[in-house]
Computed example of a mutant assay.
Amino acid sequence: MSKTGRYNYRRPEKGRNSPTRPERHITVRSVRRDPPDLRKLSRAIIAMALVDAEREKSEAEETAEAAAAQEDTANQKPSQDADHDA
């Protein structure tokens, strides 16, 4: 790894220079259209909004489950029964 934190792309086979997560390269090429294709744009925006909503929903469920688990452990009281047979 270099001083800037980048991995050496020329030596990925050794293993120590490979990143822990896969890199994703996204290429976007535009096509100029007058007027713009509003149907395609709206479908893309709706798809992105649905992905964001699903991610937020799953994060909310995870935090709710964690809070419920923490509340359950807090509500469990140790048994205070005295041993009367002794």
Rank of each mutant, 00 (worst) to 15 (best):
S2N: 12
S2H: 09
K3Q: 09
K3D: 12
T4R: 10
T4Q: 08
T4K: 11
G5Q: 03
G5C: 05
R6P: 00
R6M: 09
Y7C: 10
Y7P: 03
N8P: 02
Y9F: 10
Y9D: 08
Y9W: 10
R10A: 12
R10W: 07
R10K: 13
R10I: 08
R11H: 13
R11S: 13
R11C: 11
P12I: 06
P12G: 04
E13S: 15
E13D: 15
E13Y: 14
K14H: 13
K14C: 14
K14N: 15
K14Q: 13
G15I: 04
R16Y: 15
R16W: 15
S18P: 01
P19D: 02
P19I: 02
T20D: 11
T20G: 11
R21W: 09
R21K: 13
R21L: 14
P22N: 12
P22H: 08
E23A: 13
E23P: 04
E23D: 10
E23M: 13
R24H: 10
I26F: 08
I26E: 11
V28S: 08
V28E: 08
S30E: 14
S30G: 15
V31L: 14
R32D: 11
R32Q: 13
R33K: 15
D34K: 08
P35R: 07
P35M: 06
P36F: 01
D37H: 04
D37M: 03
D37N: 14
L38M: 11
K40W: 01
L41A: 03
L41E: 04
S42P: 00
R43P: 00
R43E: 03
A44C: 01
A44V: 00
A44E: 02
I45E: 04
I45M: 03
I45P: 00
I46N: 00
I46M: 01
A47S: 05
A47M: 01
M48F: 07
M48W: 05
A49Y: 02
L50W: 01
V51L: 10
V51S: 08
D52R: 10
D52T: 07
A53D: 09
A53Q: 09
A53V: 04
E54I: 03
R55Y: 04
R55L: 05
K57F: 09
S58F: 03
S58G: 00
E59S: 06
E59I: 02
E59T: 02
A60M: 03
A60H: 04
E61P: 00
E61C: 06
E61G: 01
E62T: 08
T63N: 08
T63H: 10
T63Y: 04
A64V: 08
A66R: 13
A66T: 12
A68H: 11
A69M: 11
A69V: 05
A69D: 12
A69N: 11
Q70S: 12
E71S: 12
D72N: 11
D72L: 12
D72P: 00
D72H: 10
T73P: 00
T73I: 13
A74H: 07
N75W: 07
N75G: 08
Q76D: 06
K77Q: 10
K77S: 08
P78F: 04
P78A: 06
S79Q: 04
Q80W: 01
D81P: 00
D81M: 06
A82R: 14
A82V: 15
A82T: 14
D83E: 07
D83G: 01
D83W: 05
D83Y: 09
H84A: 09
H84P: 06
D85P: 00
D85W: 03
A86M: 06
A86D: 07
A86E: 05
